[in-house]
Simulated assay, not measured.
Amino acid sequence: MKIDLSGKVALVTASTGGIGLAIATGLAESGAEVILNGRSEASVTKAKEALAKQVPGAKVRTAIADLGSAQGVDALLKAASDADILVNNAGIYGAKDFYETDDATWENYWQTNVMSGVRLARALLPNLVKKGWGRVVFISSESARNIPADMIHYGVTKTAQLSLARGLAKYVAGSGVTVNSVLPGPTMSDGFAAMMQEEIDKTGKSLETVAKAFVMANRPSSVIQRAATVEEVANMVVYVCSKQASATSGAALRVDGGVVDDIV
């Protein structure tokens, strides 16, 4: 299968590192012009240089915007109004006891993880429907279905993304535009590596080894019994964005290594 996205413009939010940058790189490798998004000039410049090194000749734009507010989304849209592909990757996470999670924290997570996607989809979908082709992808999480007791606020936002994506897929039914969710499990992203750094320093073990131990201790239902790479997650997203994925819409596609223990 040869995925060719030449002539398409792809916006990947929060794409200066980790899963986001891997998705942007995969889309660029498939011929798409990519819009990288981050919250600082330094981060987007570094990401652009990394992508250009990985994909020589790639067409890359950058857009600095914090998507935790409507103003930030508006700023991003000024640079991305022509996007054919929208990958809603922006999100925040972190463990916090439910009793200690105040309204401000809930609101911050809701605005960043859910409303950024609502606002971008609301702005970009009309043009995609008019053109008769487009792809919208929400990067959710296995935590959407396997709600972590120490991150209930996070899990709720990830479940909301599944509802949003399914509803939007039905809203644009028959238009040639697809809307899907991709659910990663434990993944060796930049954030995960930072979380594991103390253990790596203490034991001298590799990230892969420490990540495997983490998965077996905290996600023992994993079928692959290791953490995924960011490229493995990106591969699924690139396929969902492809022309070949035209019959996949309204789906919640898992790249969780089998962590969620069911057959659906």
Rank of each mutant, 00 (worst) to 15 (best):
A165W: 00
I147H: 14
I152L: 14
G117F: 03
V177M: 06
M115D: 08
A123D: 01
F138L: 02
A149P: 10
D82W: 02
E100K: 07
G204P: 03
P186G: 04
D201V: 09
P186K: 04
L77Y: 13
A95L: 10
S143M: 12
L128M: 15
V137S: 11
I200A: 14
W106D: 05
V172L: 06
A169V: 01
E100D: 15
E107Y: 11
N89Q: 01
D84V: 12
H153G: 05
K170N: 15
D82P: 04
K212M: 08
K131T: 04
V118P: 07
M188D: 01
N88L: 05
G174W: 04
G167C: 00
A194N: 13
A194R: 12
T209V: 15
G94K: 01
A213C: 00
E199P: 07
G91W: 13
D97Q: 12
F138Q: 09
V172Q: 07
M195Q: 15
N127L: 11
A193S: 14
T157S: 06
R119S: 01
G204M: 05
V210Y: 05
V182S: 09
A121P: 03
D82T: 05
V182W: 06
S143Q: 09
V118S: 02
I139E: 10
F192A: 13
D97I: 03
K205T: 01
T203W: 13
N146H: 13
Y154V: 01
N180C: 02
M115F: 15
P186D: 07
Y154C: 00
L128F: 14
V129Q: 08
G167L: 00
D190S: 14
V210L: 00
D103N: 11
L168W: 13
M188Q: 12
G176L: 15
G204Y: 06
M195K: 13
S163Y: 11
D150H: 11
M188T: 10
P184I: 05
A83W: 09
R135P: 00
K78W: 05
V137F: 04
Y99H: 11
A95K: 05
V215E: 09
E198Q: 05
Q197H: 12
L77F: 12
S141T: 06
A123T: 04
K78F: 08
S181C: 15
S141V: 08
E208C: 10
G94F: 06
L86N: 10
V172I: 03
R122W: 12
G134N: 08
L168Q: 09
L120Y: 12
V177G: 04
A211D: 08
Y109L: 08
V182N: 12
N89P: 02
K158T: 02
M196V: 10
A123M: 02
S143G: 11
G176V: 06
I147S: 12
W133H: 09
V210A: 09
A193N: 09
A83G: 11
W133Y: 15
T101E: 04
Y93R: 07
L128S: 00
E107N: 14
I200H: 06
A211Q: 02
T187H: 00
N108D: 14
T112D: 14
M195L: 15
P186F: 04
L77C: 04
L125I: 15
S116A: 10
K130Q: 13
T203Q: 11
G155Y: 06
W110Q: 11
S181R: 03
N113Y: 01
V172Y: 06
I85F: 00
G191M: 13
W133C: 14
A194I: 01
M188C: 03
I152G: 07
